[in-house]
């Protein structure tokens, strides 16, 4: 009986172990070698750092304005996320609850943004941003997630949510004399908080990790965002400074990991929800 139980569970545990190695080792290796000197990285892999070079974590802030890159990324992700959520909530609410002419057509049109890869429009966007004088600023990095496919996605998710809100709530508020905007901010937004935070977290993660847009739109070192910064740890002649690059990469992952670990359930649910319809 006992033997049978173990033999039944053995493959299960083996899968767990294999998955853990596959998915945790890359991160472990990154952290270990972010604490090695460049010469120690090339030796045989070890389970713990050989040189404990904590100086790597200091040096990344001196070889380029890494702190600034961090702040830039935070700024872009925060403004982008707030804008994304707010604009999308307004649109989602209206699409769900207000009858206005052209509603279905507008909604359908917006849905086309859902599937539109930024890679298709990156060239015109580059010229467009140039004519706005927005090249080499953080503006495009904030606006595109608000209005591009990430924005359409949030609007869609929020519409789906607002459709399910009972009409009685609104009726009561209207009888209390609230104007439409107050109904939106006082009644609708508060009850939508779980959904708002879900789409917000998704937007935040997406903006935090964006690479192509900053690559094309930014020039100045002090405007870089983290993904760009990570690829910029090179020595004088363009060879990667591995130890610094790994230390910076580890640091860049931290906030996202924290967000993820705190909101694990929420992030998972949001992602699952995103796929369901």
């Amino acid at each position: 009986m006992r033997y049978k139980e173990i033999s039944k569970k053995l493959p299960y545990w083996m899968i767990l172990v294999v998955l853990t190695i596959l998915f945790v080792y890359p991160f472990w290796w990154m952290v270990v070698n972010s604490l090695n000197t460049i010469t120690d990285i090339f030796g045989d892999p070890s389970f713990l750092p050989k040189s404990w070079a904590f100086s790597n974590y200091q040096e990344i802030f001196t070889v380029q304005p890494f702190a600034r890159h961090y702040v830039n990324t935070l700024l872009v992700a925060t403004v982008g996320t707030l804008g994304n959520v707010f604009v999308a909530a307004m649109a989602g609410y209206s699409f769900a609850r207000i009858r206005f002419p052209g509603r279905n057509a507008a909604f359908l049109l917006l849905l086309t943004a859902l599937m539109m890869p930024i890679e298709v429009t990156i060239i015109p966007l580059f010229f467009q941003m140039r004519s706005f004088g927005a090249l080499d600023t953080l503006i495009p990095l904030m606006l595109i997630p608000i209005f591009g496919s990430q924005g359409a996605f949030s609007a869609f998710m929020l519409r789906q949510f607002f459709v399910t809100v009972p009409v009685e709530l609104e009726e009561a508020a209207r009888i209390d004399g609230l104007n439409p905007f107050s109904i939106f901010t006082k009644i609708m937004l508060p009850i939508a908080i779980p959904v708002l935070s879900s789409v917000g977290i998704l937007a935040f993660i997406a903006i935090w990790n964006t690479y192509l847009e900053p690559l094309v739109f930014l020039n100045s070192l002090e405007k870089y965002t983290l993904p760009l910064s990570l690829t910029n740890f090179n020595d004088t002649y363009g060879l990667p400074q591995w130890n610094l690059q790994l230390a910076a990469t580890a640091l860049s992952i931290v906030p996202i990991m924290v967000v993820y670990l705190i909101f694990q359930q929420k992030v998972s649910n949001a992602m699952v929800g995103s796929g369901l319809k």
Binding site: V24, Y211, T249, S252, V259
Partner: peptide
Amino acid sequence: IIFLPVVTSGVA
């Protein structure tokens, strides 16, 4: 753990 890479940036 399977989800860790999903939230990690493609660059990293």
